[in-house]
Each structure stands twice: as structure tokens, then as C-alpha cells.
């Protein structure tokens, strides 16, 4: 099976500081990846590179059969730290704009209902609370049934209802959709994921399948390199 995203020796830096170092990673259809790591480990940068929003400083990122990625592909859904929405448009206008561009015949009313946004659809985005805007951003990233879904801390700013909605939508996506989910709330998504990737100071520390991880402790080892060995031995027992 050909990987849907291929990262080869990818490095990237911001302001002369390297944030990602020599990452080589293949992401296959159907993988549900949990991307873990401490703050500043390079998770958000890795997701942006995987989305094609950043050209890495070194290395290559290929998408599917394309020989070279020139720009983001339309089959991607991405949620970052920024909203990626127009604050001067209403909820309905925002989602309508992106669905028209994706050429996906969507029933917007149904989408708004699924994300519990029907009563807010005619409100300008700027008038909504941060949590409500976060929900609209999630709805935008799921539009058009993307083949690749990249979510960077999707539960940030969401209340418990919002988190429940997110989990139910994730449960409904098609089997061959790739999901890469960066989060600090590992317990919420461990049952969803089938692969874990851990970053530490921009380097891949761990990229194994979920079935080798049995305890919460595995996610704690990304805090220091020294603890990684201890955590690995405990899992293998």
C-alpha cells in the first residue's frame, strides 16, 4: 500500500532555531495517529508540513502519487492553532465558502445541525465566543469528507459537549481516512488511535503501533529522553 503522506529527512526551523530534525515518516491510509510531545517539540510544525502549508527547510514531503508537493491538496482537512476562518463572515457564509471551493455537494443545514451550530448560523464569527469559533473551525476541517484529517489540539477551547461531538464525528469517518491528532489529552483518544508518534525536541522518539502501548506512562516518557528506556521496558513486560 502506498503511503498517503511521505516525509523524508524533513527538518525545519523558525528564526534560526531548528524545530524539526531529520524526520522520516510514512503515513498510510486508515492510520489513526496520536501525535504526542511536550510543548515546543515540533508537533504543530510537523502537522503544517504534512498539510503542505509549509515547505520544509530540508527534506521532502510527498503526497500520494504526486512526484512533488507544490501546495496543499484539496482532500485535506486541517485544524491549527489559528482559526483559518473569516471573522467578518457569518458561520453559514464561512462554511458555505469552503464547501463551494471544495465542490462538495453539502447540505449545510445538516452540517450545522451535526455540529450544533444551527442557532448561530447567521451570527458574524467575531461575535461568537472562543469556544464557539473553535467548533466552527472543527466543522470547517471536517467539510467534504477529507481523506486526510490533521488536527492540532482540537479539544482546546471546547467544552464537554464539543469534545463529545468531536469524538462522535471521528468515530463516523471512513476507514481509509488518515487522521493525525496532536493532543495532550491522551486518555480521550487512546482508544481511537492505532499508532503513536512521540516528538521530543523536534526529533522522533517513538513511532509504534498502539498495540504495543498498554499504559498511560508511555505518554509521560516524552518529557525526558532518560525516562524513555524505562517506559519501554515496562511496556514489554
Amino acid at each position: 500500500m502506498k503511503p498517503r503522506i511521505q516525509l523524508a529527512q524533513v527538518s525545519h526551523r523558525y528564526h534560526e532555531r531548528r524545530v524539526i530534525r531529520d524526520i522520516t515518516l510514512d503515513i498510510f491510509p486508515g492510520e489513526r495517529i496520536l501525535l504526542a510531545g511536550s510543548n515546543g517539540s515540533g508537533k504543530s510544525t510537523l502537522l503544517k508540513i504534512a498539510a503542505g502549508l509549509i515547505t520544509p527547510w530540508k527534506g521532502t514531503c510527498r503526497f500520494g502519487r504526486a512526484p512533488k508537493a507544490q501546495r496543499p491538496f484539496s482532500g485535506f482537512g486541517y485544524l491549527g492553532h489559528e482559526l483559518l476562518l473569516y471573522r467578518g463572515l457569518t458561520v453559514h457564509q464561512n462554511l458555505g465558502l469552503f464547501s463551494k471551493l471544495k465542490r462538495s455537494p453539502l447540505d449545510l443545514e445538516q452540517v450545522l445541525q451535526q455540529w450544533d451550530l444551527s442557532d448561530k448560523k447567521h451570527r458574524i464569527l467575531n461575535e461568537l465566543s472562543r469556544g464557539e469559533r473553535a467548533r466552527v473551525a472543527l466543522a470547517r476541517s471536517f467539510l467534504g469528507s477529507p481523506r486526510v484529517l490533521l488536527l492540532d489540539e482540537p479539544t482546546a477551547h471546547l467544552d464537554t459537549d464539543g469534545v463529545a461531538l468531536l469524538r462522535s464525528h471521528l468515530a463516523q469517518i471512513s476507514e481509509d481516512t488518515v487522521v493525525v491528532l496532536s493532543t495532550h489529552e491522551h486518555d480521550l483518544f487512546r482508544s481511537f488511535s492505532n499508532r503513536v508518534i512521540i516528538l521530543h525536541k523536534g526529533e522522533l522518539q517513538f513511532r509504534e503501533r498502539e498495540d504495543q502501548l498498554a499504559t498511560k506512562r508511555m505518554f509521560d516518557v516524552c518529557a525526558t529522553r532518560r525516562n524513555l528506556q524505562t517506559g519501554g521496558q515496562e511496556i514489554n513486560q
Binding site: 484539496s74 485535506f76 486541517y78 483559518l84 476562518l85 471573522r87 471544495k102
Partner: peptide, 16 residues
């Protein structure tokens, strides 16, 4: 309006 909140990235991801 496009650069605020990086809205232009959503346009690019939508196929524009």
C-alpha cells in the same frame, strides 16, 4: 481579512 487568523490557508486547503 485573509491574513488575519490565516484564513487564506483554509482557502488553499479547499482547493483554491
Amino acid at each position: 481579512s485573509d491574513l488575519r487568523d490565516s484564513a487564506y490557508q483554509a482557502l488553499l486547503l479547499s482547493g483554491a
